[in-house]
Protein backbone atom coordinates (compact mmCIF):
# COMPACT_ATOMS: atom_id res chain seq x y z
CA UNK A 1 0.00 0.00 0.00
CA UNK A 2 1.30 3.45 -0.85
CA UNK A 3 0.31 6.82 0.55
CA UNK A 4 -2.07 7.35 -2.36
CA UNK A 5 -4.24 4.46 -1.27
CA UNK A 6 -6.27 3.79 1.82
CA UNK A 7 -7.35 0.48 3.25
CA UNK A 8 -10.96 0.04 4.28
CA UNK A 9 -12.28 -2.97 6.12
CA UNK A 10 -15.24 -4.77 4.55
CA UNK A 11 -15.41 -8.25 6.15
CA UNK A 12 -18.28 -9.69 4.17
CA UNK A 13 -18.88 -13.26 3.10
CA UNK A 14 -18.39 -13.47 -0.66
CA UNK A 15 -21.64 -15.36 -1.08
CA UNK A 16 -23.58 -13.01 1.16
CA UNK A 17 -26.18 -12.38 -1.52
CA UNK A 18 -26.80 -16.12 -1.97
CA UNK A 19 -26.88 -16.61 1.81
CA UNK A 20 -29.52 -13.90 2.20
CA UNK A 21 -31.64 -15.36 -0.59
CA UNK A 22 -31.29 -18.84 0.92
CA UNK A 23 -32.34 -17.55 4.32
CA UNK A 24 -35.42 -15.92 2.79
CA UNK A 25 -36.25 -19.19 1.03
CA UNK A 26 -35.83 -21.15 4.27
CA UNK A 27 -38.37 -18.84 5.95
CA UNK A 28 -40.80 -19.25 3.06
CA UNK A 29 -40.47 -23.04 3.19
CA UNK A 30 -41.03 -23.07 6.92
CA UNK A 31 -44.04 -20.75 6.76
CA UNK A 32 -45.58 -22.86 3.99
CA UNK A 33 -44.95 -26.07 5.94
CA UNK A 34 -42.87 -27.68 3.21
CA UNK A 35 -39.86 -29.85 4.06
CA UNK A 36 -37.04 -29.32 1.55
CA UNK A 37 -34.35 -31.88 0.78
CA UNK A 38 -31.48 -31.26 -1.63
CA UNK A 39 -29.38 -33.90 -3.37
CA UNK A 40 -25.76 -33.61 -4.46
CA UNK A 41 -23.50 -36.22 -6.04
CA UNK A 42 -21.06 -36.71 -8.87
CA UNK A 43 -22.58 -37.33 -12.32
CA UNK A 44 -23.99 -40.84 -12.63
CA UNK A 45 -24.29 -41.68 -8.93
CA UNK A 46 -27.98 -42.37 -9.37
CA UNK A 47 -29.64 -39.19 -8.09
CA UNK A 48 -32.44 -39.31 -10.62
CA UNK A 49 -33.26 -43.00 -10.12
CA UNK A 50 -33.21 -42.49 -6.35
CA UNK A 51 -35.47 -39.48 -6.67
CA UNK A 52 -37.82 -41.33 -9.01
CA UNK A 53 -38.32 -44.09 -6.40
CA UNK A 54 -38.59 -41.58 -3.57
CA UNK A 55 -41.22 -39.46 -5.33
CA UNK A 56 -43.28 -42.47 -6.35
CA UNK A 57 -43.28 -43.94 -2.83
CA UNK A 58 -43.82 -40.74 -0.87
CA UNK A 59 -46.32 -39.47 -3.42
CA UNK A 60 -48.80 -42.13 -2.28
CA UNK A 61 -49.49 -40.28 0.93
CA UNK A 62 -47.76 -36.92 0.66
CA UNK A 63 -47.81 -33.98 -1.69
CA UNK A 64 -44.34 -34.11 -3.22
CA UNK A 65 -42.56 -32.17 -5.96
CA UNK A 66 -39.05 -31.79 -7.37
CA UNK A 67 -36.76 -29.24 -8.95
CA UNK A 68 -33.91 -30.71 -10.96
CA UNK A 69 -30.78 -28.88 -12.02
CA UNK A 70 -28.97 -29.88 -15.18
CA UNK A 71 -26.38 -28.19 -17.36
CA UNK A 72 -28.07 -28.75 -20.67
CA UNK A 73 -30.93 -31.21 -20.92
CA UNK A 74 -34.44 -31.70 -19.61
CA UNK A 75 -34.11 -35.49 -19.64
CA UNK A 76 -34.21 -35.81 -15.85
CA UNK A 77 -37.47 -33.90 -15.55
CA UNK A 78 -39.00 -36.14 -18.23
CA UNK A 79 -37.89 -39.24 -16.31
CA UNK A 80 -39.16 -37.91 -12.99
CA UNK A 81 -42.50 -36.86 -14.44
CA UNK A 82 -43.30 -40.58 -14.66
CA UNK A 83 -43.75 -40.51 -10.89
CA UNK A 84 -46.69 -38.12 -11.54
CA UNK A 85 -45.28 -35.58 -9.06
CA UNK A 86 -44.90 -31.98 -10.26
CA UNK A 87 -41.34 -31.63 -11.58
CA UNK A 88 -39.54 -28.63 -12.97
CA UNK A 89 -36.14 -28.55 -14.65
CA UNK A 90 -33.66 -25.79 -13.96
CA UNK A 91 -31.27 -25.67 -16.92
CA UNK A 92 -28.20 -23.89 -15.61
CA UNK A 93 -26.39 -23.48 -18.93
CA UNK A 94 -22.72 -23.32 -18.07
CA UNK A 95 -23.17 -22.91 -14.33
CA UNK A 96 -21.95 -25.99 -12.47
CA UNK A 97 -24.19 -25.69 -9.42
CA UNK A 98 -27.57 -24.37 -8.31
CA UNK A 99 -27.85 -21.03 -6.53
CA UNK A 100 -30.62 -19.85 -4.23
CA UNK A 101 -31.79 -17.34 -6.83
CA UNK A 102 -32.35 -20.10 -9.42
CA UNK A 103 -34.47 -22.03 -6.94
CA UNK A 104 -36.45 -18.92 -6.12
CA UNK A 105 -37.13 -18.24 -9.79
CA UNK A 106 -38.15 -21.83 -10.47
CA UNK A 107 -40.70 -21.67 -7.66
CA UNK A 108 -42.32 -18.54 -9.05
CA UNK A 109 -45.53 -20.17 -10.24
CA UNK A 110 -45.79 -22.89 -7.60
CA UNK A 111 -47.91 -22.60 -4.49
CA UNK A 112 -45.64 -23.88 -1.73
CA UNK A 113 -48.56 -24.33 0.65
CA UNK A 114 -49.80 -27.09 -1.67
CA UNK A 115 -46.68 -29.18 -0.94
CA UNK A 116 -45.45 -31.32 1.94
CA UNK A 117 -42.03 -32.21 0.59
CA UNK A 118 -39.87 -30.62 -2.08
CA UNK A 119 -36.73 -32.25 -3.46
CA UNK A 120 -34.02 -30.25 -5.18
CA UNK A 121 -31.60 -32.23 -7.34
CA UNK A 122 -28.39 -30.29 -7.82
CA UNK A 123 -26.16 -30.44 -10.90
CA UNK A 124 -23.95 -33.56 -10.84
CA UNK A 125 -20.80 -32.18 -9.22
CA UNK A 126 -19.10 -32.87 -5.89
CA UNK A 127 -17.17 -29.64 -5.66
CA UNK A 128 -19.10 -26.52 -6.55
CA UNK A 129 -22.49 -27.06 -4.87
CA UNK A 130 -20.83 -27.20 -1.44
CA UNK A 131 -20.55 -23.41 -1.21
CA UNK A 132 -24.18 -22.60 -1.99
CA UNK A 133 -26.95 -22.73 0.56
CA UNK A 134 -30.30 -23.33 -1.17
CA UNK A 135 -32.51 -22.91 1.88
CA UNK A 136 -32.95 -26.68 2.23
CA UNK A 137 -33.65 -28.36 5.57
CA UNK A 138 -31.64 -31.45 4.73
CA UNK A 139 -28.76 -31.95 2.32
CA UNK A 140 -28.05 -35.43 1.01
CA UNK A 141 -24.79 -36.46 -0.58
CA UNK A 142 -25.12 -39.56 -2.75
CA UNK A 143 -22.30 -41.83 -3.80
CA UNK A 144 -22.56 -45.11 -5.62
CA UNK A 145 -20.60 -48.24 -4.78
CA UNK A 146 -19.01 -48.07 -8.23
CA UNK A 147 -17.21 -44.82 -7.49
CA UNK A 148 -14.48 -46.13 -5.20
CA UNK A 149 -14.27 -46.28 -1.41
CA UNK A 150 -12.05 -43.21 -1.14
CA UNK A 151 -14.54 -40.75 -2.64
CA UNK A 152 -15.32 -39.15 0.75
CA UNK A 153 -11.60 -38.51 1.34
CA UNK A 154 -11.25 -36.93 -2.10
CA UNK A 155 -14.22 -34.60 -1.65
CA UNK A 156 -14.31 -33.90 2.08
CA UNK A 157 -15.84 -30.43 1.76
CA UNK A 158 -19.10 -31.63 0.24
CA UNK A 159 -19.37 -34.38 2.85
CA UNK A 160 -18.80 -31.91 5.63
CA UNK A 161 -21.56 -29.62 4.34
CA UNK A 162 -24.09 -32.45 3.88
CA UNK A 163 -26.32 -33.85 6.61
CA UNK A 164 -26.89 -37.37 5.33
CA UNK A 165 -24.94 -39.75 3.08
CA UNK A 166 -26.76 -42.15 0.76
CA UNK A 167 -24.77 -45.04 -0.68
CA UNK A 168 -26.52 -46.07 -3.91
CA UNK A 169 -26.39 -49.08 -6.25
CA UNK A 170 -25.74 -51.54 -3.42
CA UNK A 171 -26.99 -54.31 -5.74
CA UNK A 172 -23.63 -53.84 -7.51
CA UNK A 173 -21.32 -54.16 -4.49
CA UNK A 174 -19.86 -57.46 -5.62
CA UNK A 175 -19.60 -56.60 -9.30
CA UNK A 176 -17.82 -53.35 -8.46
CA UNK A 177 -15.58 -55.02 -5.86
CA UNK A 178 -16.54 -52.33 -3.38
CA UNK A 179 -15.18 -52.66 0.16
CA UNK A 180 -18.23 -51.46 2.10
CA UNK A 181 -16.42 -51.40 5.45
CA UNK A 182 -13.76 -49.07 4.03
CA UNK A 183 -16.41 -46.88 2.43
CA UNK A 184 -18.30 -46.55 5.73
CA UNK A 185 -15.08 -45.77 7.58
CA UNK A 186 -14.10 -43.09 5.07
CA UNK A 187 -17.46 -41.36 5.41
CA UNK A 188 -17.01 -41.27 9.18
CA UNK A 189 -13.47 -39.93 8.79
CA UNK A 190 -14.64 -36.81 6.99
CA UNK A 191 -17.91 -36.43 8.85
CA UNK A 192 -17.94 -38.20 12.22
CA UNK A 193 -21.38 -39.39 13.24
CA UNK A 194 -22.88 -38.89 9.78
CA UNK A 195 -26.11 -40.82 9.22
CA UNK A 196 -25.72 -43.17 6.26
CA UNK A 197 -28.35 -45.00 4.21
CA UNK A 198 -27.28 -47.87 1.99
CA UNK A 199 -29.76 -48.75 -0.71
CA UNK A 200 -30.49 -49.80 -4.25
CA UNK A 201 -33.06 -47.87 -6.23
CA UNK A 202 -33.18 -50.74 -8.72
CA UNK A 203 -33.89 -53.60 -6.32
CA UNK A 204 -35.56 -51.46 -3.68
CA UNK A 205 -33.36 -52.86 -0.92
CA UNK A 206 -32.88 -50.31 1.84
CA UNK A 207 -35.37 -47.80 0.40
CA UNK A 208 -37.89 -48.32 3.22
CA UNK A 209 -35.48 -47.11 5.91
CA UNK A 210 -34.82 -43.94 3.98
CA UNK A 211 -38.50 -43.32 3.22
CA UNK A 212 -39.50 -43.78 6.85
CA UNK A 213 -36.69 -41.49 7.95
CA UNK A 214 -37.51 -38.61 5.59
CA UNK A 215 -41.25 -38.82 6.28
CA UNK A 216 -40.56 -38.68 10.03
CA UNK A 217 -38.17 -35.75 9.66
CA UNK A 218 -40.69 -33.87 7.57
CA UNK A 219 -43.38 -34.54 10.14
CA UNK A 220 -41.18 -33.32 13.01
CA UNK A 221 -40.05 -30.26 11.17
CA UNK A 222 -43.31 -29.00 9.71
CA UNK A 223 -45.62 -30.29 12.41
CA UNK A 224 -47.90 -31.57 9.68
CA UNK A 225 -49.95 -34.65 10.27
CA UNK A 226 -48.03 -36.60 7.66
CA UNK A 227 -48.38 -40.29 7.77
CA UNK A 228 -45.75 -42.68 6.62
Amino acid sequence: MTDTTRLVEVRQHLLKKNDLQARALRHRFRDAGVFVVSLVSSPGAGKTAFLECTLSALGQEHRVAALVGDLATENDAVRLARSSAPVKQIVTGTVCHLEAEMVERALDDWRLADLDLLFIENVGNLVCPSSYDLGEALRLVLLSVTEGEDKPLKYPTIFSTADIAVVTKTDMVEAAGCDMAALRENIQRVRPGMRVFELSSRSGTGMDDWLRFVAARARESTGHALSG
Binding site: T5, R11, H13, L14
Partner: peptide, 13 residues
Protein backbone atom coordinates in the same frame (compact mmCIF):
# COMPACT_ATOMS: atom_id res chain seq x y z
CA UNK B 1 -13.42 -18.40 5.43
CA UNK B 2 -14.53 -17.00 2.11
CA UNK B 3 -14.74 -13.29 2.65
CA UNK B 4 -13.87 -9.91 1.27
CA UNK B 5 -11.76 -8.69 4.16
CA UNK B 6 -10.72 -5.24 2.95
CA UNK B 7 -10.32 -2.99 -0.04
CA UNK B 8 -7.42 -0.79 -0.95
CA UNK B 9 -9.00 2.30 -2.43
CA UNK B 10 -7.43 5.17 -4.32
CA UNK B 11 -7.05 8.04 -1.87
CA UNK B 12 -8.37 11.39 -2.99
CA UNK B 13 -5.44 13.38 -4.35
Amino acid sequence: ELELAALELAAPE
